[in-house]
Amino acid sequence: MGDQDGIVPYSPLARGVLSGKYSIDAPPPAESRAGRGDKRIQQTEWRKESIGIAHKIAAHAASRGTTSIAFALSWVLNNRFITATIAGPRTEQQWDGYIDALSYKITPEDEQFINQLVIPGHSSTPGYTDPNYPVEGRLTR
């Protein structure tokens, strides 16, 4: 990628998985994408591995004084390939949680923590990569 190129990803919260609202041991909330049977989340993010990692990220974010939502968005924006991200909150309260990402700065310790959970440049399930979106890696700011 050249200096002028940029990427604007969608679904920085993995269709809500990184919000922490899902549980491995319980059915999804009825009003959620997974609860409504959304085909795309069923094909990609709806995996026990992803939900387990999301809970670890939520605990890490809380220990850093932020939310899993702010942490995940800040993580996405900390990638030098990323120019911006498409935000998709449904409510003003959710939007307020997105705004918090602008004040959280990802640290080297955060990078190390995530790299222990997920192989850099890959999805949360080893060997699984959405064939529509090939892996190109990650360069931090």
Rank of each mutant, 00 (worst) to 15 (best):
99 I>M: 10
21 K>A: 06
114 I>A: 03
101 A>H: 02
69 I>R: 01
41 I>D: 07
67 T>F: 08
30 A>R: 13
55 H>K: 15
56 K>T: 12
126 P>F: 00
109 E>K: 12
127 G>K: 01
133 Y>L: 13
95 W>G: 00
141 R>T: 11
68 S>H: 05
137 G>I: 02
7 I>K: 02
94 Q>L: 05
12 P>W: 04
46 W>D: 06
70 A>K: 07
84 A>M: 08
105 K>D: 11
120 P>F: 09
82 I>N: 07
66 T>H: 07
134 P>E: 12
50 S>H: 12
91 T>Q: 04
7 I>L: 15
90 R>I: 02
101 A>K: 00
19 S>M: 03
39 K>E: 15
128 Y>L: 08
141 R>D: 12
19 S>A: 12
81 F>H: 10
136 E>D: 03
138 R>V: 12
82 I>M: 10
84 A>P: 03
13 L>F: 04
102 L>D: 00
78 N>G: 10
87 A>F: 04
109 E>N: 12
27 P>V: 12
47 R>L: 06
136 E>K: 12
102 L>G: 05
133 Y>T: 10
116 Q>P: 01
69 I>Y: 00
67 T>Y: 07
35 G>S: 04
117 L>A: 02
39 K>Y: 14
72 A>T: 11
115 N>R: 08
33 R>H: 10
75 W>D: 00
57 I>L: 14
116 Q>E: 15
64 R>K: 15
134 P>W: 07
33 R>V: 01
66 T>L: 05
78 N>K: 08
10 Y>L: 11
28 P>D: 10
139 L>V: 15
17 V>M: 05
111 E>W: 04
121 G>K: 09
96 D>E: 14
80 R>E: 13
76 V>I: 09
23 S>E: 15
30 A>Q: 14
103 S>C: 04
42 Q>W: 04
11 S>E: 10
17 V>Y: 03
120 P>Y: 08
59 A>K: 11
109 E>V: 10
70 A>L: 07
89 P>Q: 01
88 G>L: 02
28 P>R: 11
84 A>G: 02
118 V>D: 04
125 T>M: 05
24 I>M: 09
88 G>Y: 04
12 P>E: 06
